[in-house]
Amino acid sequence: MDETAQFIDFCINILFPALADGLMITVLLVLITAPFGIAFGVLLAVGRVYGKSYGNWICRLFVGFVKGCPLMLLLFILYFGLPTVPYVGVTFDAFTASIIGFICCNSAYNSEYVRGAIISVKEGQLIAASALGMTKRQAIMYIVLPQALRRAIPGLSNEFIYLIKYSSLAYMITLVELTGAGKIVFTKYFEPGVFFVVGIVYLALVTVTTVGANALEKKYAVPGTQKR
């Protein structure tokens, strides 16, 4: 009993305030990354499906590199590596470096879902659009993408959930977000419950997001086309 009371006391006075600060950073990381991740993901996908020579190759190389390289290494490159490059070296603070790394990662994976969705839009849709006098750009903007993005929602929300989780890697380049906040408290007090509390916060974030994503998917489903 005594131990329980002590743990609750520890949580209220030390752990929760620290985690609250960390959670702030995690939420900021995720909310800033996500819109850019989706926008660039769509651009990459369009580049890969419709792009000509250069654009197409750049998009492919980018996605291939980002998917093959561990995110943590990408963060190291952005945070520790770039400042050392002669002449062009840029120095980012940990927050900015994390955001850039996450946007790269998120957009690369998002582009896979969007690309798949674009390819799955039936050819007739483009033909009908052309027959009405739409330019290729108009047809992509008004006909293909609205359909593709709807179909990509499950994949995109899946990626959003991954983003919540891998945002913890920002701690590896010194940014004290949720996981980092927990780790610092743990190192100071050696209280074994710390990582379970941190875990519960992540589970809550992920579970709430999943429920939200399912609702979103329902809302944007085109009537009459629910999954077989």
Binding site: G124, I127, A128, L132
Partner: peptide, 20 residues
């Protein structure tokens, strides 16, 4: 050509309505 396509309508066997 897109100007002409506005003046030349087309109806397809499989309708090709915009699904969304």
């Amino acid at each position: 050509i897109n100007r002409f396509r506005q003046k030349i309508g087309m109806v397809f066997q499989n309708f090709y309505l915009f699904d969304h």
